[in-house]
Structures are given as structure tokens and as C-alpha cells.
Simulated scan of single mutants.
Amino acid sequence: MSVVSLLSVEVKNNPATFNAPYEFEITFECLEQLQKDLEWKLTYVGSATSNEHDQELESLLVGPIPVGVNKFQFNADPPDLSRIPNSEIIGVTVILLSCSYDEREFVRVGYYVNNEYTDEALALEPPAKPVIEKVRRNILAEKPRVTRFAIKWDSEETAPPEFPPDQPEADLVADGDQYGAEEEEEEEAEAEGAAAAEGDDAEMAGGEDTAGPAADDDAASEAGSEEIDIEESEGEDEDEEEVEEEGGDDMEMDDAGPANDDQSRPQQAVPPNADVMVH
């Protein structure tokens, strides 16, 4: 279970101009006294084809962290245009808000960001070099993608079974109070609905095999057809013998026959939004 749970992230200035700073109000809950500070980072993905253009816009240490619900403001500067290819400035990209404890990342929130011209003429015929003063950014704040990682906190008891891992996979089991849990529940419900539909189809497809009387009728029908085939084949054999007598050695017959082959926890009284030292 995570000692720190992200409860909400509110994007304060959205939409905004491309050169405007990023402003977030972050609320999280701490269940135990922590020995070290939390490190929050905001990363701008500059290109969809290479991580060489990713930029760390801001890194912030928050602490000491009191037990309970905490809230603070997180601001970051806009990205450096000289580090982004001109062809990647306009369009859709991603920003990543992450938090680490003792250099171990335990939560990451991803947002899609759409950069577009406010001028209709520029939108129809965008210049080769973007006119940044006319570009507006819009963060899709309603649909964040939240990823959680199991890490070791201050005690060995909190370490995951294979600590220290490379953290290749997210811990997708979220408590109901955690940020982004609703989106994950919707995805799980859709997957369960699809699986149930497949199960119904499979059950209906096997219904013919379980019908007793129908199977008996089919067997009798097959037996009758088999007798007819035998009589016809005998007649054919006689015709074939007559053909052999007339045709002599020029006609050969093939004698070969057919082959057989998200844990809930008790509510605890927590102090009102606590002041957190940001440094």
C-alpha cells in the first residue's frame, strides 16, 4: 500500500497561451511520517518520435510532510522552443507530472496538450516557423492518465517483493479516493462487458452438442444415408467391371479407399489542509 496517495490535480490556467507558465494545485494524503521530502517534476514531451526533445520544466522538493491531507501550488515555466523541432510545436503532445520519494518514482500523471493557432488564417496555412504569439495551448485536464508504482518507503516492510525493481509496470490497483481511479474503473468495466459477451456466444455455440433427441435423429439419418451409399457403390462396381471387360487393359481403377484419420481503508480523521514547506 502506498504511504502517499495523490487525491487531485487542478490545472489553474487552462487554456492559456503557449508561453504562459503552468500552474497546478496538487492535493495528496500522507498516511505515515516521512523521513525525507517528496520531489515533484513536470516534463514536456517535445517530440513523438524521440525522447531527446523531452524537457524537465520544473523540479520541486516538498517537505517536511505532515500526516494527513496536504495541498500546495506547483508552477513551472513553459518549454524552451529552441529544443523543440518546428514541425512538433503545433499539434498534440504530452506533459508528465511525476512524484518521487528518495529518488524512486511512485506516481505519474500524463496529460494530452493541444497547441493550435488562434488565428484562422494561420490555422489553415501554418507557416514553416511557428508564430508563438498566436499559439494557444489546451490541456486535456478532464482525462488524465495516472500510473502508480510500488516502491520502498522508509521501512523494509513497505518494500515490494522484488525490490529494487526497474519499475517496468504500473500498479494499476487504485483506491477509490486516488486520483484517476474513475477512469481506470471505466476501462475495467468495458473489458468485463466484452468478456461476458464472448462467454455468452461460446455457450450458445455449444448448445447443439447438448441436445439429446436431436442427436438421436441425426444418427438415424446418417445411418440411412450410409446404407444408400453402399448400394450405390455396389452398382457402380458392377458398371466398372463391365467397362473393364469392354476396355481391356487400357482402363485402370484406383482400389485405394478413403483414409481414416482497486483495497479500501478505514476513514481517518485528518487535519484541515496542512501547510507544506516548498523549497
Rank of each mutant, 00 (worst) to 15 (best):
D217G: 11
D250T: 04
N14R: 06
F24Q: 04
A123E: 14
R136P: 02
L140S: 05
P271L: 12
G199W: 14
H53C: 13
S233G: 09
D261Y: 15
E226Q: 15
Y112G: 01
S100L: 05
S50M: 05
N86M: 07
I84P: 01
V11Q: 01
Q167F: 09
K71W: 00
Q268W: 00
D262M: 11
K152G: 05
D250I: 03
A170V: 08
E125F: 14
G206P: 00
V276I: 12
A205G: 03
A194E: 13
A196S: 11
D262R: 11
P160S: 13
T17R: 07
S264R: 14
G68D: 05
P160H: 13
E246K: 07
E157Y: 05
T158K: 08
I139A: 06
V62F: 04
V4H: 03
E105G: 06
V135S: 02
E58D: 12
E162A: 07
R108K: 12
N273D: 08
V276L: 14
Q178E: 15
L61R: 08
E56V: 00
D77P: 00
V135N: 01
P168G: 09
G63W: 02
A256M: 01
D209G: 14
H279I: 03
V173G: 02
G224R: 15
E184W: 04
E39H: 05
N114H: 13
Y44G: 03
A141L: 07
R108W: 03
K12S: 06
W153V: 00
G199P: 03
D217I: 15
E185K: 10
Y101V: 04
I230H: 13
F74R: 04
P165Y: 05
F106Y: 12
L6E: 03
G176H: 09
T49F: 00
V278I: 15
G207V: 12
P85L: 08
Y111A: 07
E222V: 15
G193P: 01
E29C: 10
P85V: 14
F24L: 14
P272C: 04
K143R: 15
D239R: 08
L38F: 04
D154A: 06
E227H: 12
N260W: 06
N70L: 06
L61M: 10
V173I: 11
M204I: 12
D37E: 08
D37R: 04
R145Y: 10
P168L: 15
G248H: 02
S47H: 03
G63A: 06
K134I: 05
S233C: 05
K143S: 07
